[in-house]
Design a protein around this nucleic acid. Structure first.
Lengths: 209, 209
DNA sequence: CAGTGATAGTCCAGAATGGATGGTACAGTT
DNA sequence: AACTGTACCATCCATTCTGGACTATCACTG
């Protein structure tokens, strides 16, 4: 009965809470146009997860008995309670940034000449595009007071995109070292490594064997 | 033979490229202390993935024939080439931010009184902690020129953490509306919604059925 | 030599991922 | 009325990923 509730679970519960009774397809659409910009949930998940939640008693399922026979899910009292409990807990899972560009930059010394430059260039364009997109959405939504909370991810999104954009601009113009400088690190005394080489893929302090 | 290479694959190839021949355990350690702060790769993956890559000919495997019988992996020419090709391509997968706090904020109107306040408070503390941690690491590493590239994720990390921290501070002090204002959106003409309600969990334009 | 903690690796159930596939409903033609 | 394009709606599947539980080795200490 007591199943594990993941982020997908709460996404489904929460969206149904906001939207009222919804089909998986509607959830899929809602996700595509909101949280999916930052945290992509594949649509197949939005078909599987409500089923799980219904089995666990957190959602009620009703099927049209004509036409398309759509499945609609709505919150049960237990579902609403689970949602409430989750929202009441201010602790959160670790904040994750999955950024392939970061990986490429990290490993860039293993690539050809110009790897960093081309990467930075592409990233500037990429984040510029996202930033504009988010800003346009925000402009359209900013004046509807009732939507205040729901616009929040976009606001954070804009700020994060601004941070990325400025980072990659710095990298493009002055390399990682330049970006470092503009982050407020200009180099103090050249204290050497202090046993933290592992961060960089170097050798451990202790010898293996 | 031609297997799909995921982010995990390139992580493994890249780390072995930087470190030289490595065991899964060493990779695990390296990840924990670097990229794992932003993008957690569970250690079991770092045992499975090298095996796959070895089968595909991108890594060579050698096992100690005494004592612990550690498995060490090293890049084959094909592995190095795959890495080079990946680094040479400036395109990247979508930039993802998986942030449970954002979900909670999005759904906060379904929670009890004070949900946003408690959440913002906890988030400020959380991001403050991370920021300090990253800054300390940077301070220790900033003066080792050879590590320039490898320190890059930390630099981006600091900037993103700064963005999050300022966002959550604004939310704590003045609510989402305040954060909005400080993001440069102060409200123009109250153009109403323009059919974009779906972003917010509202109804679609077209009617179901 | 028992105890402790770092090192090293395996295994597994369950969840997530990302397509591929295959329908239905309807609007606008022609 | 047939045709066509496009949303709409849903299921399935092969891989991967995830998070732990579990086992065992080794180095050091008292």
């Amino acid at each position: 009965m007591a199943i594990n509730l993941s982020a997908s679970s709460y996404l489904v519960l929460g969206l149904i809470g906001l939207r009222g009774p919804s089909s998986s397809y509607q959830l899929k659409r809602a996700v595509e146009r909101s949280i999916g910009y930052f945290w992509p949930f594949p649509h197949s998940q939005l078909y599987v997860e409500p089923k799980r939640l219904a089995e666990a008693g957190l959602l009620a399922e009703s099927t049209e008995n004509e036409g398309r026979r759509r499945r609609t899910y709505s919150l049960t009292p237990q579902g609403r309670e689970a949602l409430r409990a989750w929202l009441g807990d201010p602790d959160t899972e670790v904040f994750q940034v999955r950024n392939e560009a970061e990986l490429k930059l990290f490993f860039s010394e293993l690539g050809d000449e110009g790897t960093v430059e081309r990467l930075a260039d592409a990233q500037v364009r990429y984040h510029q595009g996202r930033l504009e997109e988010f800003q346009k959405m925000l402009e359209r939504l900013v004046d509807v007071p009732v939507l205040e909370k729901r616009v929040a991810p976009l606001v954070l999104g804009v700020r994060i995109e601004e941070a990325c954009l400025s980072f990659w601009r710095d990298v493009r113009e002055t390399g990682v070292r330049g970006a470092l400088g503009r982050t407020g690190f200009l180099g103090g005394d050249a204290e050497f490594l202090a046993g933290n080489t592992e961060f960089l893929g170097g050798n451990e302090g202790r010898h293996p064997g």
